[in-house]
């Protein structure tokens, strides 16, 4: 037998991607987890074990900020799940209706916010909701709801929910498109078979289509989860790094940014920042694992 010759071209094809991916993504990821175990003492990096995590969860000042950010982040996610995904499914169900006119036009228009940057979205809504400019109060006046207007982005109780709804407004296009694709792939014969049994209209949606698109809803949920627990830009663009008013819109992304990069008088602390990043990593990993092992394997997939 000939010794296997090395097929160099395989290496050449793989090398650039592996090199960039490993050095810029995988290595820093693990290095960040490692840095979380160090601290700076007298300008030297010292191994401190789990001290940073003890500070993060044990020191009342740190832990209060952390739990606040985590709680806010959960609320942010809950709003997305309860508002963004149902609206996306509803719009997709309507759009996938056969023979609907102008479907392409609606689809294109509804997707527009998704392509805008957070900076544009954040400022545009800030201006519209601003009591100084008065677009929102004036429009509410015209439908007789003027008394209900409040500067929602400036109030501690409502700022986070308002920002979450702005984010929902921006990203509704994603569940819409994915569900739309899933609905279009349902074969006509199945729906016709349902019709023969007298299942039409709304009943057809609940009893036939919804079970068939459950895997897509699962994917959307995990995409929303990862996206939300990694969010930063919208809050930063609309409320700044301080995530005001009084940290009521602080989420893990802004908390990590402030900690490791520093802001105003506080100096940046890369090691505490790494500890927060590690916590975010753990949360995202848990979420992805729950999805992969707990949800995805239980969803029944149908082959047509």
């Amino acid at each position: 037998m000939k010794p296997p010759r090395i097929r160099w071209h395989i290496l050449v094809f793989l090398a650039p991607a592996l090199l960039v991916y490993t050095t810029i993504m995988i290595f820093p990821l693990f290095n960040t987890l490692r840095l979380a175990l160090f601290d700076e003492v007298d300008q030297a990096r010292v191994f401190v074990g789990l001290d940073n995590f003890r500070t993060l969860f044990g020191d009342p000042r740190w832990s209060a900020s952390f739990w606040n950010a985590l709680g806010n982040n959960f609320w942010f996610f809950v709003i997305h799940m309860l508002v963004q995904n149902p609206i996306g499914i509803l719009l997709a169900a309507i759009l996938s209706h056969p023979r609907l006119r102008f479907a392409a036009l609606y689809r294109t228009a509804i997707f527009v916010p998704t392509i805008l940057s957070f900076v544009i979205v954040g400022f545009a809504w800030k201006l519209i909701l601003s009591p100084i400019w008065g677009i929102a109060p004036e429009m509410m006046d015209s439908v007789g709801l003027g008394d209900f207007f409040q500067p929602w982005l400036g109030l501690e109780g409502t700022a986070l929910t308002t920002l979450a709804l702005i984010s929902v407004w921006q990203f509704v296009g994603i569940p819409l498109m994915l569900i739309y694709a899933a609905l279009l792939s349902i074969p006509e014969e199945i729906l016709e078979a349902g019709e023969c049994d007298g299942i039409t209209g709304a009943a057809a949606f609940w009893k036939i289509k919804l079970p068939l698109i459950l895997p897509s809803i699962g994917i959307i949920s995990i995409l929303t989860f990862v996206g939300n627990f990694n969010a930063f830009d919208l809050i930063y663009a609309a409320q700044g790094a301080l995530a005001g008013p009084d940290f009521s819109t602080d989420i893990l992304g802004t908390f990590m940014y402030r900690t490791f990069f520093g802001f105003q008088l506080q100096l940046g602390d890369p090691h505490m920042g790494s500890a927060i990043a590690s916590a975010m990593f753990a949360i995202i990993l848990i979420g992805v694992c729950i999805y992969l092992f707990g949800i995805q394997t239980r969803l029944r997939r149908y082959q047509f």
Binding site: I26, F27, T32, L35, N230, F232, F260, P270, A277
Partner: peptide
Amino acid sequence: YLALGIMIPIRIGTVAILEL
């Protein structure tokens, strides 16, 4: 190995990326 990065956001490694 290459698919790992689909689910894990690169932002988690920002501290080390900046250092690099």
